[in-house]
Write a protein that binds this DNA or RNA. Structure first.
Lengths: 203, 203, 203, 203
DNA sequence: CATGAATGAGGATTCATTCAT
DNA sequence: GATGAATGAATCCTCATTCAT
C-alpha cells in the first residue's frame, strides 16, 4: 500500500500528535492532561487535533493501542519462536523490559490508568483496550501451558502463573519509574527470571 | 479517651464521608470523582464535607492514609512476631491478601492512582502518602534482609526482592478485581508463596 | 432608664460583636469580611451573631450608625456652641480629625464603602446610612450659611463649600491611612484650616 | 502599527468586555459584580472573558489602568505645558473635572475601591494600581513645588497641598455622583479653583 | 441563649468541543 | 485543512443563614 504525499503527511501529523499526547498524558495523567497542552507541544492548534482523532478519548485510546500493538509484536515474535518454554520466558522478560526501557512513557500512561479502564468509567476505552491486553496475556499463557504439559513448570493454573509473571515485570517497572528512572531496567531482568523460575529461597 | 456525644457523632460522620468517598473514588478515580456524588452517597450536602476535610485532596489523602495505617499495623504485627523469616513471608502474603479481600475498594483506589502520586501532579498527595507506603516496604525489607543473613534467602538486593513480592501480591489483587471479584483472594496466597519461595520451575 | 443584669449583658455582648466586626470590616471590606472571622474575634459562635443582629447587613449598618452618631454629637456640640463661624470651622476640623484619629477603623470602613451605598447595591444600607450622613453635612452647612450672611465667607453656594471642606478633611484621612498611619492626623488640621480659609496662594 | 482583521477584532472585543465590566463594577462594586453579568452585558459567554483577561482581578485592574493612563496623559499634558504654576492648577482642575464628566463610571469604580487597595485585601491589585496613581500625584506635586519656589504658593509641604487639591476635586465628583449626576461637573471647577487658591474667607 | 453542624445557593474558573474564517 | 475564538457544561469551594441540641 503506497501512500501519496497527502496521505503521508496525514500519517506523519497524526504521529506528531500521538507523541505530544504521550508526553503530556505521561506527565499529567488522562484527566489532568489538556488538549491545549498537547496541541502546544505538537505545535498545532487545538482544533487540528479533531482532524485526526474523534475526541480526547480517541486520542488516548489510539496511543495505548499503538503501544500495545508494538508490545504484542514483541511478545508474539518470542512466543512463536522455536525456543523451549523456559527460554521463551527468559526471552520474554528480557524483551518486554527492554521495550519499556525504550518506551518509558507508554508504561507511565498505561499502568496507572489501567485500573480505571472499567465499564463504569470509560466504557469505550475499556472496550478497545482490554481485549488487546488480554491477547498479550493469552500468548504468554500458551507458553506456560506448553511448559506445564512438557513437565518443566509446576502444575499451577497457567493464567495464575502468567499473571504472577506480569506482576513481577510490572513491579520492576513501577519501582524504576517512581525512583526516578535511575539505571537500566534490563538490570532487573535477571532477578525476575531467577525468582520466577527458581524462587527466592535458597534450595 | 472517652468522647462525648458531639465528638462521637463527629467521628462517625467523618467515617460516613470516608466510606462514601471510598466507593466513589474506587469507581471513578480521583479526578473523575465529584464531591457532589460523594455528598449524595453520604446523604449529606456538598458543603458538609468541608466541615470534615480541608478539600478534595485532603479527603482523598485521608482515605489512603487510613487504609495504609491499617495495612501497616497488619504488616508490623507479622514482622514483629517471633517467627522465622520464611514463615513471616508466608504469613505476610496471607494476611495482606486477607486485608485486601476485606478492603477491596481501598486497593482499587490506591493502586491505579499510585503511579500518579508524583510531585508533578499532586505534590501534596505525594508528600503525605509516599512516606507511609515506603514504611511498609521497609518493614518487609527487614524480614528479607534477616533471611539473607540467616542464609535462607538468595543473596539478592533485599529491596528488589521485596518489590518483587509486592508485585506478585498486587497482580493477584488486580486480576481478582478486573475479573469481577469472583472467589476469594486467599486462594492465591498459596500460589504466590510457592512462586516467591520456590519458583515456577519444577526442580 | 436603668437596665437589669440581663439587659446589661446583652448590651455588652452586642458591643463585643460590634468591635469585632469593626476590626474585620476595616481590614477586609464588607464583602470579603466573613461572619466566621467576626465571630472568632468576638470569641462567640457564628450563630450567636443572629441573636443581636438581623443579618450581616444589619451588623454592618449598626456599626456605621454608631460611628456616625458619635460624629454627629461632636459636630453638633461645636455647631451649637456660641463661637463665631470661623472659629467653629477651625474647631470642627480639629475635632473631626481628632475623632478619626481615635477611631481610625471607622473611617477605614465608612469611606471606601460609602460610594457603594446606592439603591442598586444596598438599598437597605443606603436608606439607614445616608440620612445620617446628610444630617452632618447639614449642620456644617448652617455654620457656613451663617458665615456668609455675616459677611465672613465668600458668597458661594453653602452646600458646595461644605462639600469642599469635607473633601479636604477626607483626603487628609485617606492619605494618612494609605501611608500606613504614620504620625498624627492632628498635624493636618492646621493646613486644612489654612487652605479652606485662606487658600494656597500667597496673597 | 497596522493590525490585520483578527487583531482589530480582538482589540475591539477586549474593549467590549472592558465597557461591560466598567458598567457592572460601577454599579455593584468589585466583589458583588459577577462575571456572569459582565458577560451578559457584553453579549458573550462567561468563558470568553478568559480569552482576554487572566481572571476577574485582571479584568478589574485593566479597567483601572486604562482609566488612569488616560488621566495621566491629561495631567501630564497640562503639567508639561509652558504655563505658570497657578494657571497650570486652574487648567488641571478644569481638565480633570472634564475627564470625569465624560468618564463618570471610571470614577465610580476607582474611588470607592481605592481604600480597599491594600496589601491585605488585594495585593495584586495594589501592586499594579497604586504606582500609577502615585505618578499622577507626583506630577501635580511638581507643579506645586515650582509654585512654592517661585513664591506664588504658601510654603506648605507640597504633597500635603496636592493631596488637598485632589480632595477638593474628589469631593466635588462624589457629590455629583451621589446626587444623581445633575448638571455638569465643570460648574464646580471655578469654586474649587477659588477655594484652593484664595480660600473661603473673604479677605 | 449559645453552639456549631448542615445547608444550598452562588461564583470563579477550566476545558472539551464546535465552527466561522 | 488549520486556526483560535466562543461556548457552556461541569466542578470546586465559600459563606450567610438556619436549626436541633
Amino acid at each position: 500500500m503506497t501512500l501519496n504525499r497527502r496521505q503521508r503527511e496525514k500519517k506523519e501529523r497524526r504521529s506528531v500528535f500521538l507523541m505530544a499526547a504521550k508526553a503530556v498524558f505521561a506527565e499529567k495523567g488522562f484527566d489532568a492532561a489538556t488538549l491545549d497542552e498537547i496541541a502546544n507541544r505538537a505545535e498545532f492548534s487545538k482544533g487540528a487535533i479533531y482532524g485526526y482523532f474523534k475526541d480526547k478519548d480517541d486520542l488516548f485510546i489510539s496511543l495505548i493501542e499503538e503501544g500495545l500493538n508494538k508490545l504484542s509484536m514483541i511478545i508474539r515474535s518470542v512466543v512463536e519462536s522455536p525456543l523451549p518454554p523456559i527460554e521463551k520466558i527468559k526471552e520474554l522478560i528480557k524483551s518486554v523490559l527492554a521495550y519499556f526501557d525504550e518506551n518509558k512513557e507508554f508504561f507511565r500512561i498505561f499502568t496507572p490508568e489501567r485500573g480505571g479502564f472499567t465499564d463504569k468509567k470509560h466504557p469505550r476505552v475499556a472496550k478497545r483496550i482490554l481485549p488487546k491486553w488480554n491477547d498479550n496475556i493469552g500468548f504468554v499463557t500458551e507458553v506456560i501451558k506448553d511448559g506445564i504439559e512438557m513437565g518443566v513448570f509446576k502444575n499451577i493454573d497457567p493464567t495464575t502463573l502468567t499473571n504472577a509473571l506480569f506482576g513481577l515485570v510490572q513491579s520492576s517497572i513501577s519501582r524504576w519509574i517512581m525512583e526516578g528512572r535511575k539505571g537500566s531496567l534490563k538490570r532487573d531482568a535477571e532477578v525476575i527470571t531467577t525468582i520466577f523460575l527458581d524462587g527466592a529461597k535458597l534450595q
